[in-house]
Design a binder for these strands. Sequence first.
DNA 1: AGCATTTGACCGCA
DNA 2: TGCGGTCAAATGCT
Length: 265
Amino acid sequence: MSTRRLSSKKTRSQPPPRSSDRRDAAIQELRRGAELADLLKKQVELIPEPNRRDAAVTNVGEISMAMESSLCILQSEMEHPSSPEVGVAAGCYSSDGGTGETNSGAVARARRVRHRRGRHGADFPIKEILTDAPENDRFHWRKYGEKNILNAEYPRLYYKCGYSDDHKCPAKKYVQQQSHNGTPFFLVTLIDEHTCETLFRDEPSSSSSNASQVLDFTKPSLSPPEEDSMPVSMHSYSYDEYLSSSLPAISPDGDRVKFSPGPGW
DNA sequence: AGCATTTGACCGCA
DNA sequence: TGCGGTCAAATGCT
């Protein structure tokens, strides 16, 4: 990607470009980068060795996804200059994605609801993530509800931490399937953080059994990506970011996250 | 039997 | 009153 072009063209005689112009330029560059990533992906798919090919395809896919996420963020920022509540891909794809509501709207509602349910003024963290693999966050989630959302193509699924009762873990997530240019993806809203994770770290004696339960990828319905077949096309950079920032250290063999697609999935 | 999921009812807010 | 979020009984699965 040629970010250099953005800075080197500036001359003293010209007025400094407006920030919207620079965003335009950045968007152009990102679009070009995304196209090149697609091209590269096609070339990489021709690699004969399966292991190398899959690894390369995965990497290119992540590059492509990062481009698209950045593009989304920039575009949504131009459309809605007031910064959204969450920075990660907020507003992306939602205009034609089917829900008809902005992501930050969902976040605002989440905060409102949590507030009225007793956590007065709690500043709990909320993250929004676009991914094609909502099941793949290595936590154990229990589905507690499903709701058809107005103007949404797919129902919204409600999950809470599988240890919300045992360990009073407040973590929740909402999963909303959407589609963008025919590509299905999921808007995952993560609410609050896992305290069960901390508990497991504090209780080494029980960690072995607990860890294998937390990391529950047993569900066959949406099978977790094997090492050689990571989801590529829409694998979310921000999801990875979330995982790397909040995951406990875990052994891969126990990895399982429950995710059951709703009707029509 | 124990656990997870489904689904209709209920609640609070705008 | 309609909507989104949650609850909890019923149901299904292993």
